[in-house]
Nucleic acid binder design. Structure first.
Lengths: 106, 106
DNA sequence: TTGACATATACCTATATGGGAATATAAACT
DNA sequence: AGTTTATATTCCCATATAGGTATATGTCAA
């Protein structure tokens, strides 16, 4: 069995560093593809393909604007990842506690 | 160019659902491999391989205990993912705000 | 040493990937 | 209609997967 598709969920989509960059770039503002290309220094087809993956899992939204397509990050779709990582918060808090204890014991 | 290795970073390692399950399972307690196998209903070699990936990116720690090896989640290694997702918090907060506004406008 | 138990590795296969070049679609302008 | 601009898709390829079966390594016990 091969790896799950990048489009299978947000976790897989976000594993690719360029896609994370794109999400960051599109978080505060909607932007046309060309601006992503020049802004991040990637190839245009490459960007289009990444956007397709991100669209498939709902991480970005698009709307037409003249001949441009304006993409922007749908932050809501990142939330499940946040919630999942957050369930471990109390554990790293405990670990910090233990580190503290050890430091103080010396 | 193929996809980045699962061992290239925590983002890639965590993309696999079984590995997330394992991390959850090992968060509160260290456990031997056999307990992961029976607890999650996976094949033993499969579990060993997943653990190898997780070990490679520092998401789990191991220690010998007799003939067993006790694995446990290293929550600290999940923290970068948390921090990354958290940078989008203010955006989904805004989106919720907009939804509220629309609802109130009706 | 031999045997039982616990974990790791090797071997197999189908499949999805990311990037680049070339091309296709689509819209706007004249 | 034809041309320019913006984005999407196709075609190419090398490569790393996940799972299963079989086997290897490692550790304790008698």
């Amino acid at each position: 069995m091969p790896r799950a598709a990048t489009t299978s969920d947000a976790f897989n989509a976000v594993a690719e560093p360029r896609r994370r960059q794109i999400l960051e770039f599109l978080a505060s503002q909607e932007r046309p593809v060309s601006q992503i290309v020049t802004g991040l220094g990637l190839g245009q087809p490459s960007v289009s393909k990444h956007l397709r993956v991100l669209r498939n899992v709902g991480l970005v939204r698009v709307r037409r604007f003249g001949r441009h397509k304006l993409y922007h990050t749908n932050a809501e779709a990142i939330r499940p990842l946040y919630e999942w990582t957050r369930t471990f918060e109390r554990f790293w808090a405990h670990q910090l506690g233990r580190i503290k204890e050890r430091a103080e014991a010396k």
